[in-house]
């Protein structure tokens, strides 16, 4: 069976114009994600998770290797993929409705349909009544939910989510996790989900990918075999904690290694 999404030996070097040198962010990522699979990526800060999502989306061309979606090489962004950006990056001169509608405008969806679909997703993320508010009038968490709605509204087959729930309180976060799983299940989406919260990664995913410290590599791929639908209570079960500990120690190695490096130099 052909993978929905495949990364083949993806490398990425950032050019650093000031020193005119290269900074290696990704050193050969190999990854296969099946259709309808929910995969999370965890790893130390700065290991290239955001960079990897940008390459998958087609925003940054890989320095070497390639990304395949349905077996076709990705060269630029397309409507089959949408990103929930780490910094919400809402357009400040557009209202909530205007921001959520943005992707549909780019796809030339008719005004009335665009408004209907946008309103649906604004309700879904719990922001009905805020349609006419500007981003500066929203809290960080609310902005992040607009960011989520903006990606969902274009109905992408692949969702690329970069720490989408990072600025939410614990309760809202759990509600949003539930919503996301519902959407994922109902609309049969493939999700690549970056997070720093290991319990979140395990709770949501079929598989958790652990990245090594910079330059990023796939250090390990850990399947999560907990049955679905998952109740919130699974987070307190021994099996869950077992996976959590395993991932923790994998990341800890790299975080320590990185810190030692910094103190040495």
């Amino acid at each position: 069976m052909i993978a929905k999404l495949e990364a083949q030996d993806v490398r990425l070097d950032y050019l650093q114009p000031r020193s005119n040198s290269q900074l290696r962010a990704l050193a050969g990522i190999d990854l296969k994600v099946m259709d309808g699979e929910f995969v999370s990526i965890v790893g130390p800060s700065g290991c290239g998770k955001t960079t990897f999502l940008s390459v998958v989306d087609g925003l940054i061309p890989a320095s070497a290797g390639r990304i395949l979606v349905d077996g076709r090489v990705v060269t630029k962004p397309g409507p089959d993929r949408a990103v929930v950006f780490q910094d919400a990056s809402l357009l400040p001169w557009r209202t909530v409705l205007g921001n959520v509608r943005y992707g549909l405008e780019c796809l030339k969806v008719g005004a009335r349909e665009a408004k209907e679909r946008a309103t649906h997703f604004i309700n879904l993320v719990g922001l009905s009544g805020f349609e006419d508010h500007y981003p500066y009038e929203l809290s960080g968490g609310m902005q992040q939910r607009v960011n989520l709605a903006r990606a969902l509204v274009v109905d992408p087959k692949i969702l690329l989510m970069d720490e989408p729930f990072a600025s939410l309180d614990a309760q809202t976060r759990e509600v949003m996790q539930e919503e996301l799983l519902q959407i994922w299940l109902k609309a049969k989406k493939t999700v690549l989900f970056v997070t720093h919260q290991i319990d979140e990664a395990i709770y949501l995913s079929d598989r958790v990918i652990v990245f090594s410290g910079r330059p990023g590599r796939v250090k390990q791929s850990i399947p999560v075999t907990i049955e679905r639908p998952r109740r919130l209570a699974v987070k307190r079960e021994a099996h869950f904690h077992g996976i959590e500990d395993a991932i923790w120690s994998l990341i800890e190695e790299d975080v320590r290694a990185e810190r030692n490096q910094v103190t040495l130099t």
């Binding site: 925003l59 962004p77 950006f85 943005y102 780019c106 796809l107």
Partner: peptide, 24 residues
């Protein structure tokens, strides 16, 4: 740059990027 990135991610045309991101 981050707003232009959003527009590009949604496959906005060059004109759309100009009118919706640069002009405002």
């Amino acid at each position: 740059a981050r707003f232009i990135r959003v527009a590009r991610s949604f496959s906005a045309s060059r004109f759309k990027i100009f009118s919706s991101i640069i002009l405002p």
